[in-house]
Design a protein around this nucleic acid. Structure first.
Lengths: 335, 335
DNA sequence: ACGTTGAGTCGAAGCGCTTCGACTCAACGT
DNA sequence: ACGTTGAGTCGAAGCGCTTCGACTCAACGT
């Protein structure tokens, strides 16, 4: 491995000069700079990450803590992770991948060892046990998701309350008066995942306001559970003319079951999905949807982190305004 | 931050003794060890990662290079990534997440800077431009996937040739004589992705051997392309009684289109998928499938890496034997 | 009674950077 | 003619570990 000292010798300058060329923290004459840069090129020098971290007490690494579960919103998680990695690189940071199963211990380990300068946490629960540690830690952290208490925390998330409201509003405008919400799996509500509860809050609030009847049914993924759920909904509320789906793995089953029962979309029933655009576009019917802006969430999270590491940026909750795209699955209420 | 020196002072021993307690590289008396461990606990000490890396020239980090694309096999990628992270932690390593878009430069940067001790590469193309660098590098690397030339490389992959053969064999046994293979998107073949070509090789080889007719059609994801592809297949080969699908986002569209055309599965046509078990189980028909053992691939890759870092283990190609699970989508050929 | 051995411990050097203070020297104003 | 200023450079210290060599001392065989 080539060291900074070898570069210095090759360029005929001192080690500190090479360091200042690299960091730009002191002015360097053009001639010297060029000579050093040439030596770096010729020798194929890469600064040693460990030495740099030790001397500067900055690792230039951001830790990303992902959920271990692979049973839900996989495409969203993946897109966020890739956006985080890409944005981080653009700012000169690398990304350390942690899984959620280490829990609070991972937070302690990473912040304590200086492995990373900051953390991004996904899949935050309303009363997450990692939060006290983050509040105490002097290292910046950003949550993707919204816990119950956000004091002293920085969060980035889609505004799920507004998302729920927007869905009801759209359907109400089309004349729908009886809406069913096919939600996430029961386990998601039991874990008190923030986004699921907030969506429900937004849906119920707007439904109450506009005098629309709303039926909420958690639903496991797959054809069997969806079919059963749908049967119960249609039994209890035969007048249902619109469905809102949040669980992306229930989308295709729902469309399939509706087709089986001879209910045309959007003539007989409208379907509105809360899902990534890609899912909405690849479904068997092009879905009217509120998109989950995974890329933007990942990117914003990194930008906040970078700002905080640079000493700028307060703790704050940054909610992304939902956007509804009308496609082929929603239309006027029948009759 | 608590340092090793503070732990030493607290425990009344020298710094090197604390270090040896931590590493176990020299014998320590029980009394001293316990005293040091108590001090570590009480002070909440975590060794500084940078200092450790600098002194030992080992970072205890494994880099994982993932494809940037989010348009294909997302669940597989995700499951591999999580298996890598989990297995790595179990061996005391952390995982650095790199995206493929930095290309060979990322390999140079990571190996040159000592950011990681080893690399795992996913989404390897047959003639990948990162391979020469890996062969030259003194740092261990493992590929998940199989390039054209595997000399001096360690690879882990599903045996896709055997997978293709297994699929044809199963269908031939059921009496099918006309099989259509709905492959990956055309772009995948154009990039010469190894697994796609190898699957085809296995399918064709076994089909030739058993005298079965095989039609190969690349197919983009979504209902439109799948529907069009299927129409062409049924036009050209009306006698087709079985489909093999590799592109997991074509699975549900294929089933939907078959249903629309009144072809019952498995009475009229058999469908066999090459996909993760989860996809096979959540489809509208429980699919007979050859599973893609994502978890095992990730785990094996890390185990190889760890072995190589410990000085054990040769360069070698490790192919996982495919397993076919019969479910509800395959049956005897009609007539 | 003696050297030998190994368990247990310490001190110092060194890993490859960053950063501080100090120096030189030309340019500048008075 | 003089001090002042800032651009440009260097040397040394220090970041927090690991590891080598050296030391002590009890246990052991002869």
């Amino acid at each position: 491995m080539v060291t900074l000292a070898e570069v210095a010798r090759h360029a005929g300058v001192s080690a500190s000069t090479v360091s200042y060329v690299l960091s730009g923290k002191r002015s360097i004459s053009t001639g010297t700079r060029e000579r050093v840069e040439r030596s770096i090129q010729q020798l194929g020098y890469h600064p040693n990450a460990g030495a740099r971290a030790l001397a500067s007490s900055k690792s230039n690494v951001i830790a990303l803590m992902m959920p271990l579960r692979t049973d839900m919103y996989v495409p969203v998680m993946m897109e966020i992770a890739i956006a985080v990695a890409t944005t981080a690189r653009a700012h000169g940071y690398d990304v350390l991948l942690l899984t959620g199963d280490e829990g609070p211990a991972a937070v302690r380990r990473v912040t304590g060892s200086g492995l990373a300068d900051a953390m991004i946490l996904m899949d935050v629960e309303l009363d997450d046990e990692r939060l006290p540690l983050l509040r105490d830690s002097e290292r910046p952290a950003v949550l993707i998701g919204l816990p119950a208490d956000t004091t002293e925390l920085t969060c980035v998330d889609l505004d799920f309350v507004a998302t729920g409201a927007l869905c009801v509003e759209h359907l109400a405008e089309l004349g729908h008066r009886d809406i069913a919400f096919i939600g996430e799996a029961p386990a998601v509500y039991e874990r008190h995942t923030g986004f699921a509860e907030r969506t429900l809050e937004g849906l119920r609030g707007k439904a109450g306001e506009l005098g629309v009847r709303l039926l909420h049914r958690p639903c496991d993924a797959g054809y069997g559970p969806t079919s059963a759920t749908l049967a119960r909904v249609l039994d209890e509320r035969p007048g249902t003319t619109a469905f809102i789906v949040q669980n992306e793995s229930a989308v295709e089953p729902l469309l399939g079951v509706l087709r089986q029962r001879g209910r045309a979309v959007p003539e007989d029933v409208s379907v509105l999905a809360i899902c990534p655009d890609q899912v909405a576009l690849q479904a068997s019917v092009r879905l009217t949807s509120v998109s989950i802006p995974a890329e933007e969430m990942g990117r914003r999270a990194v930008e906040r982190i970078v700002a905080k590491l640079a000493g700028r940026g307060e703790d704050e909750v940054s909610l992304i305004t939902p956007e509804l795209t009308v496609r082929a699955s929603s239309g006027n209420a029948p009759g």
